[in-house]
Amino acid sequence: MNNLIVSPTALAFAVILVVIALAINLKEKIGLERDMIIGVIRAVIQLTVVGYVLTYIIKVNRIWLTGLMVAIIIFNAALNANKRANGIPHAFVISLLAIATATLITILLLVIAGAVRFTPSQIVPISGMIASNAMVAIGLAYRSMNTSFHDQRQGVLERLALGANLKQASAHIVQMAIRTGMAPTIDSAKTVGIVSLPGMMSGLIFAGVDPTKAIMYQIMVTFMLLAATSIGSVIACYLAYPRYYNSDMQLRDKSLNSAK
């Protein structure tokens, strides 16, 4: 592990990379410089704080503290997924339920299988990976559902008019949303090792772990993320689609109401 040295001086030099990105941004008038600066400042503060917090949690090694950290991760992931919901009623609660279930089921299976131990140094980072992937998948699924319910409104109305129940009227939209949510994870599973050397595996190799062992971990992570994104997307989509309808099984959007 001794070969893993990033000194404060080295980090300071890495700032040059940010300056290059900023310079390109300003020259090309992309207009992202404010977001980039905020992003960099937030990343430094958040990661520094979480570094100290993780050090403390790993040191004291209490179950409740580990659980609390996992809960905070899930809560923040749900808050973020909620921002992508664009007005779906109760999206925060739905996201919280979906991400919590995806994270807890996946972790439980990994602990039962003996793939990870219930120690803060393993549970917290793994929860973060699962929750963030589920969050991205759910966000994409929400966006897909919003677009489809808007663009395919007439088709949904006709299905309802033919006597379909809400599930039958929405099935094609829900399936598309789940596919959209899972697509990045599936694409990444297909190209892992060929295109990308994922962060966890690279980190372990950086830290001096035997690459074959690092790869075993990465395979586990790939399976874990496939499970988590599918559980998260399915739960979120199936809980969210009824929110597009009112209690009279009519679409909530106003365009039908404009009929004269």
Partner: peptide, 20 residues
């Protein structure tokens, strides 16, 4: 129940959309 009712009272749209 709405699906039962709508299967008996069938509404045809002016500009229908076909599925699939």
């Amino acid at each position: 129940p709405k699906p039962v009712y709508r299967q008996q009272v069938s509404y045809c749209f002016q500009q229908p959309t076909l599925f699939g």
